[in-house]
Structure formats: C-alpha cells, structure tokens
Design a protein around this nucleic acid. Sequence first.
DNA 1: TGGGTCAGTGTTTTT
DNA 2: CACTGACCCA
Length: 630
Amino acid sequence: MPDSNAAQTDDLRNVMANCLDLDNPKSFFLFAGAGSGKTRALVDAMEMFRGRYGQEFRLADRMVAVITYTNAACDEIKHRIDYDSIFAVSTIHSFAWELIRPYHEDIRKWLRQNLEMKIDDLQKKQQKGRVGTKAAGERTVQIELEQKRLDRLDTIKYFTYNPNGENIGKNSLNHTEVIGIAADFLNNKPLMQKILIRKYPVLLIDESQDTQKDLIDAFFAVQSKHSGEFCLALFGDTMQRIYSDGKTGLKEAVPAAWEKPAITINHRCPKRIVSLINSIRSSADEHIQVPREDALDGYVRLFLIQDNEDINKNAIETEVFEKMAEITSDDQWSGESREIKTLTLEHHMAARRGGFNDFFEPLYRIEKFRTGLLDGTLNGIPFFSQRVLPLVKSLQTKDKFAIAQTVKKYSLFVSSDSLKTSESPLEKIRKADAAVQSLFSLWDGDSDPLLIESLKAVADSDLFAIPDVFAPIVYRADSEEEKKEPDDSTKTFDSNPEIDAWNEALSAPFSQIESYVEYISDRSSFGTHQGIKGLQFPRVMVVLDDNEARGFMFSYDKLFGAKVPTSTDVKNEKEGKETSIDRTRRLFYVTCSRAQSSLAIVVYTKEKQKIIDHLKNLKWFDDNEILDMG
DNA sequence: TGGGTCAGTGTTTTT
DNA sequence: CACTGACCCA
C-alpha cells in the first residue's frame, strides 16, 4: 500500500512509453483529475520520448508538438523541458496558425467561401427579422464589413494573425477563423495531414477537454487515417471542461483501441477537500480521487449570506477571513498580511473587491477596450504602468537608481536625441529633476492624488510624452479650469464615449492603477473562476454571487437549489444534453479543487433557507461546515 | 382575446 | 440561456 502511488506512476510511465513507440505508435487519453500531476505526466512523457528519439529527431528535423490552452501553461512546459528544440510547445492558436500560414491561396479560398456564407446568412436573417431594431442595425453594419473584406480579398498578398490579442488589421484573420481553417484543412486536405504527421509524428494536447472541438475532431480524423505513423495523446479531465468550445462527450469519443490510463491520486488537496470534490463530481461521473497518504486533513467551510442591497461585501468577506483563521489556526487567513486567493466569477467583481473598480469599470464598459484593458496593452495604460507608476513607486521608496533609470529611459529631457540640442546636459537633468519633484509633490502628506492630476503634472512639466488618447483629456481639464463655469460649448467634447470613459477612469485615485496592474499581472489576490485553470493556492475563498455576476452561462443559484431548474434544463436533461447546472457544477469543481490547505465558500443568496435544505440533500458538507452569516 | 412562436436583448471566460 | 414582447392566427 505505501508504494501504490509509485506503482501507479510506474504503470503510467510504462503505458505511455509503450504508446510513444514510433515503430508501433498507439494513441492514448490520459485521464488526470485536479492536482494529479497532469503536467508532471506530460513532461514525463516528453522526457521519455527525448531519451529514446531525441538524437534521431534532432538530425531529422522532426518534432513533437505540444499544445496547451494558455500562454502561461505553454511557458511552464517549455521551462520544464529546458526549452529543448525538439519540442514545439505552443498554444492551440499559435499551432493552428503555424500549420496554415504558408497556404495563402487556400486561406483566401476558405475565407471567400466563409465570408459569402456569412453574408448570405446575415441577409436571410435581415429579411426574416424586424426592421429598425438594434439587431437589424448591427446586421447592416456586419454585412457591410464582411462585404468589404470580401471585396478586397484579392488584394491581400499575405494574411496575418497575432495569436495573443486583437487582430484588427486589414489583412488579419481572427481567432475563430484560424481555428476553423486549420480544422478544415486537416479534415479535407490529405497533403495537410501528411505535412502534419511528417513534421510532428507525435502530438500531445494538454487540457484536451477545453480544446476547440472542431480541431479535436480533425485530430481524431487524422489519427484514424494514419494510426500507424501518428501518435495522438490527450491529457485532461472531462469534469474540468469550463469553456464552451470544448468537446462535449470527449471521453466517449475516444476510440476503443486507444490506451486510457488514469491517475487517481490527488497530490494537491488535503483529505477533506478531496472528499468534497469527489462528492461534487459524483453526480456527473464515476471518477474518484484519493488523497496522498501524507495529506493533511484540511478545512472546508461554506458561509451563507442573505443578499440585500445594503450589505457590505468587503466587510463580510473580511469577517470570513477572520473566521477561517480561527477555524484553521492559520494566521495567513488573518490581518493585512494575509495570503488568500479570492475567486470571483467575473473581472468586475474582482475589481470591486480589489479596490480598482473606479478606474476599471468605465474602461471595461467600452467593448473594444476590453482585451487591451485585461492584458495591459490598451493605448494609454503603458503610460501609467511603465512610466508614472514605477517612477512614483521608486520615489516613495527613495530608490534613486530606479528613479534615474525610469527618467533616463522615458523622459523627454534626457532622451538621446534631446541631449544633443542646445541646452546643456546639466541644465536638462536639473529640469528633469524639477519635473520629477513637482510630480511627486502630489503625494505630499501621504495623499493619494487622482490619476488625472498626475497626468496633468506630467503634461505641464513635459516629463514624459503624453499618449494621443489623453490629449483631449488634458485639454478638457485645462479648459474647465480656465472657465470655471463650463458652458454649452464644452458639450462638443462629450460626444465621444471613449474619451468620456477615460475621463471617468482618470478621476479615480492614483492608487487604483497600482492595484489594477497587480491584478492584470496575476500578482493580486484575485482571480476569476475560469482564469485560474491549472493553478493552485494554499488558502482559497470562492465567491458565489449570481446577482453581482452579469453573464448567463452559470447559475450557482440553480446548483445550490435556490432556483428550480428551468424548462430548458428539464428538456436538456431529458435529451441527455448538458444543462446549465452541469456546467456550473464543473466550474465549482474547478474552483474548489484549487485549494491546497483550506477552502472558504461564500454564498450570497436571496433564498438562504432553500439552499440550506438543498445542501442537506446533497450531503457535500457536514452540518458544522455550513455557517450562517445572517 | 388567448395562445403559440420567434426575434430581440443582455453579456462572461480563454486565445 | 432566460426572459420579454411583438406579431400572427384562430
């Protein structure tokens, strides 16, 4: 018994080694639940392969392709395999793009067909639909847009695509198109299949349950046609499918001839949490995990809160932290220096709790700002995140070297070409110093100036170049100051929602940009339920709050019995399709299984009693684990 | 006028 | 996905 883990690991390694045999390749699906060391197994497989075929592959210019879901996972795996060049580790989008990018003529053909189909579809809808609605207006715009793309299709020499972020250029393909094209080419072009398997005789897919279903199907098709020369290996856990484009029924779709090893151990979670997640998934499938023998007992508590308009969620959640500290005797739940990961369903819920909502929310409302706001590339953000914020931080810590560095790198006074002009370098450095001091004076007496004030200070002293997006705002702020009574003529500035959004965001205190930057660089104590896929944290607080959430894909109220299943749910259930409850259960499973030592679940609801009753039936929690917070 | 049907509307996550 | 409301037909 003490060696059962080791025995299982050995078995798994044997199965994988047996499959990764190029003379007799066999495909497999490794079923690996939360905390089972899925990445470890993946890297094991890669290392075994390298040991056997590394030399040969290097000489023959062949590679093993490894596909991950996120850039973070991609970096992690590359790191763990020492950036070995026989492994092409990439996200599914990069991989798909690399596969199709040489075939511009085929892409053009696909795109023409696709655009014609889309336009046709939209026109049909336009005829059927009502006139004058918002949807009709959007359809008109969409048709025009697609028509324009169609018209200039022949003028495009090379298609472009950026796997990370937005694709707005005239020649660019979008994320969906790249996936669609790759799937289509793999399905229908025998040459494409040959190219794939010649270069990558082995293809490993991490998080396969969330990989776009069209591509998964295409890979399945390639494998079945070339089973003697191609090894497809899927790693994943069907219970952790939390994105809508993953393949439903992946487990059932795996061909019978494949190997289907499974890891049953959970290295991450303490005993209590393993038993909780086992209960949660027991209504979905048969898989049971066992904790490590040396696992701690761990703690789970569910806090129920009556949801009213006037409750102070931050205060309640702080109270939860303190209660958890008491229950677990773990100081890290308590006080200002606590180390807790709070998981909210949506970004704006994190923004509110993380204290950067005044800055975040106005910008988030602008649809086309969203991606850039979430990855920090939005025009205007680097001005703060890379120039003003680091400068202010080093001023606060009196780090003279860092101050000088930021000034030297970005300041208009000491940039390399301005040093050549008439003024003496010494004069310029003195001016830069004065500009820095005048900016920092805004923080005199420990105050927290508004972002707009810091922007104006920088603009007044010409310390840094002001991004174009801020020009109208600096101008507006100036003109309002001059004529204290704004008349109607200022209204002309107000017609641009993007400038308005920035104006509102910049009225937030400067400290909010710091919290925001922490959040988007994953250094904050917040994360979304979906975004923390694959990660783990010692102390986790999961916030369940349907009212504050805006999306409609998940309903914790239904999962916990505060709301009855709708007619669609009943219908889906009867037809054997997944319901919103199934979907929510999987997401809940993912969040709970992040915890390495203790887990607090905070439930805001208008139907506390119904939830209490429902939880009694579910038996997920012991009575003493449910705390009524009033 | 009542019932049935379906378009319209709001909107999250990852790349 | 769930809901609302416009519209059609009996």
